[in-house]
Structures are given as structure tokens and as C-alpha cells.
Design a protein around this nucleic acid. Sequence first.
DNA 1: GTACGATCTAGAGTGCACTCGAAGTCAAGG
DNA 2: CCTTGACTTCGAGTGCACTCTAGATCGTAC
Lengths: 133, 133
Amino acid sequence: MDDVIDTTRTFSIGELARLAGVSVHTLRWYEAEGLFPRDVPRTSGGRRVYAHDSLAWLALLGRLRESGAPIALLRDYAALVRAGSGNEAERLALLRGHERSLDAQIESLIACRQVIHDKARGYQEALVARGLL
Amino acid sequence: MDDVIDTTRTFSIGELARLAGVSVHTLRWYEAEGLFPRDVPRTSGGRRVYAHDSLAWLALLGRLRESGAPIALLRDYAALVRAGSGNEAERLALLRGHERSLDAQIESLIACRQVIHDKARGYQEALVARGLL
DNA sequence: GTACGATCTAGAGTGCACTCGAAGTCAAGG
DNA sequence: CCTTGACTTCGAGTGCACTCTAGATCGTAC
């Protein structure tokens, strides 16, 4: 199997924003907040040049955000990656911690769903009883 | 079976806040935002007197909020209840709509959980391989 | 060389849902 | 009567995560 990922591919901020589904404003803001695991290199003219793996990194950040992780957690995780190998136990603990909070969130949502479903069923039955459904 | 709920029981704002697990500030703010299905009566001195069913109402609002419903949805729902019977179909549609969004949320969280779990497993295996776990 | 779109920085603005502060009123205990 | 604590209104402040603006610069296409 050939490698299908071109590891020499780089992205401009506009390209990366489009591919990652975030705004260029957000990318600059993420950088300022320390959410990248290494400094983003620049062209001689000062423009950002993102490495090919930035997309995967942003995908992971996106999953963390989507699941309710605060920016501070992404910052902590980025700092661990930035510090280099040797802190895998800490990275694991951070991810496991978020996984637990995710479990709690899912449980809570399922409970809410049940309550709302029951309430809806009440209205549904009332409508059926009156021949309106 | 005797009725175990005292329907004549009323609550002061402080009591209700404590029982419902919200702040008195929030109760006043909810009222100002039109989140109650009827006007909250007052004593001659101007203090709010909440009816016994306010607790159940707040529990429902709490479930809706906990599951990501914006205040606007609670306001719309309260307006329907306030308008009285006859709009059960609309109430049902509103609740069903939120139930759908809840399904989507739960699915999304499960997908996030998978991604994060896989990432954590990577670190775990690396630690095991190095005899650190 | 100039037009044009993409990018740059620093900092201000936005939306949501509270959350708090100030200054005053009410009601029960001593 | 007086203190104390819960309550009142109104409006300002908070935290989060962007989101946008202004004004300048870069780089490619004509």
C-alpha cells in the first residue's frame, strides 16, 4: 500500500479554515490561546503555514469542543503534546477524564429524553382521545 | 390511595429556589423572560407566592435546559401552556422537535466518545509497551 | 505598476444565560 | 420599637467562545 497522505502538503489559513470547518478568525484565536501543539511557522511575508497534520489536530479539538470540553482543557492537552513525549500518562488521564464527563453527559441526555418523551406522549394521547390524531 | 401531594402548599421564592436547585435571581429572571405559564401571584406586601405545581414546572424547564434547549424554546412552550388548552398539537410538535435535536446530540456525543476513547487507547498501549502501565 | 483578494495585527463587539450589586421594603422574634 | 434576614426593583457585570472591524501588508495576475 502506498502512503495516501501527502505529508509535505501545507495549508494557508484560508484553506485550513475551509477544510476544518472553522473561521480564519477562530484559527488565529486558537493559536493565541495556545491550542496548537507547536508554533505555526510563517512565510517571509508573515503568513501562517500550517503543516498537513494540523487538519487532524483540529479534528480532534473539534471533537473535544463538540463534546463540551472547555478551551482550558484543549489548552492543557496542547501543552502536554507541545512538551514532547514522556507525559503520555498525563495525556491519557486528561482524555479519560473527559471520557467520564462524556459518559455522564450522555446519561443525563438520555434521562432528559425520557422525561420529554413521556410529556409528549401525554399530549399525543390527549389528541388521540379527542380524535384529533 | 390518598393524595400525597398537598395542592394547597405554596412556596416563597427562597424555598422554591432551594427545592428546584436554582438561584432566586434565576427565578425572577425566568419570570421576566416569560418562562412561567401563568402570572406569579404576590402577597399584599409584594412578595411572590408560588403554587405547588411550580416545582414540577421548573423540573420540566430544568430538563429542557439541561438538554440544550434555548430560553426561547422554553418561552414558546410557556406561551402555549399560558394560552390554555386547544393547542396541544403545537405543544406536541415543540416537544417532538426538541426530542429530535436530543437524538442528534446523543448520537454526536457517542461519536465523540468513540474518537476520544480510541485516542486514549493509543496512549494506553504506548504506556503498556514501555512497561509503564 | 497597479488592482485585487487573501492575510496580517490589535482590539472591540456579540450572544447567551445568568449573576450580582445597590438601595430600599417587609415580617417575625425579642 | 428594633433588629435581622428574606424579600423587592432596576440595572450593571460576568464568563465563555467566539466574531468582527479597521487599517495595513502581501502576493499574484494582468
